[in-house]
Deep mutational scan, measured.
Amino acid sequence: ALRETGVIEKLLTSYGFIQCSERQARLFFHCSQYNGNLQDLKVGDDVEFEVSSDRRTGKPIAVKLVKIK
Score class of each variant (00 low, 15 high):
G16F: 00
E9Y: 08
V51T: 05
R23N: 03
D45T: 12
I61C: 11
T57Q: 08
E48V: 06
E4L: 11
L11C: 05
D54W: 05
N37I: 15
N37T: 15
D45E: 07
G6C: 01
G58E: 09
K10F: 02
G16Q: 00
K69L: 08
I68A: 09
I8A: 01
F49D: 00
Q33S: 05
I68P: 10
C31G: 12
Q33R: 14
S52I: 07
R3F: 02
Q39M: 10
R56D: 04
G36W: 03
K10C: 04
L2E: 12
I18Q: 00
D54K: 04
N37L: 14
L38K: 15
L65W: 02
K67R: 14
Q24F: 07
L65I: 10
A62T: 02
G36E: 13
S21R: 13
F28K: 13
S21K: 10
V63Y: 04
G58W: 03
L65T: 04
F49H: 00
L11F: 14
Q19R: 13
V63K: 09
V66R: 06
R55M: 07
S32G: 14
R56V: 09
V43Y: 12
D45M: 08
F29I: 02
R26Q: 15
F49W: 01
K42E: 07
Q24V: 13
H30E: 15
S52Q: 11
V47T: 02
R3A: 03
K59N: 07
V63R: 12
K64W: 02
K59R: 12
E22W: 04
A25H: 07
S53M: 09
G58P: 04
N37Q: 13
K67F: 02
S52A: 12
Q39F: 09
V63D: 05
G36L: 05
R56F: 08
E22C: 08
E9M: 07
K10V: 08
F49E: 00
T57E: 11
K69E: 12
T5G: 04
Q19P: 00
Q19L: 08
Q33T: 10
L12C: 10
A1Q: 03
S32N: 08
N35V: 11
D46P: 10
L2K: 15
K42A: 11
T5H: 03
L65A: 12
D45I: 04
Y15H: 12
T13V: 03
I18D: 00
V63W: 05
Y15R: 10
E4Q: 10
L27N: 01
H30A: 05
Q33I: 04
S14I: 03
V66M: 12
Y15G: 03
D54R: 08
S32F: 04
S21T: 08
G44K: 05
V43G: 06
Q19H: 06
G36S: 14
V51F: 07
Q24P: 10
F28N: 03
G44T: 03
V66C: 12
A62D: 02
S52W: 05
L11D: 01
P60Q: 14
I61M: 10
R55C: 13
C20R: 15
D54N: 04
F17S: 02
E4M: 10
V7N: 10
T13E: 03
G58T: 08
C20K: 15
K59Q: 09
F49R: 00
K64F: 09
F29T: 01
K64R: 10
E22Q: 07
S53H: 07
C31W: 08
Q33K: 14
I8M: 02
V43R: 09
E50P: 00
E9G: 13
K59H: 13
Y15M: 04
S53P: 12
A25M: 14
G16P: 01
Q19S: 12
P60T: 08
C31H: 12
A62P: 02
L2V: 04
Y34Q: 11
R26T: 11
S52P: 03
G44E: 07
Y15W: 10
L12Q: 06
E50I: 08
V66N: 02
V47R: 00
I18F: 01
C31S: 12
G16R: 01
T5S: 07
C31V: 08
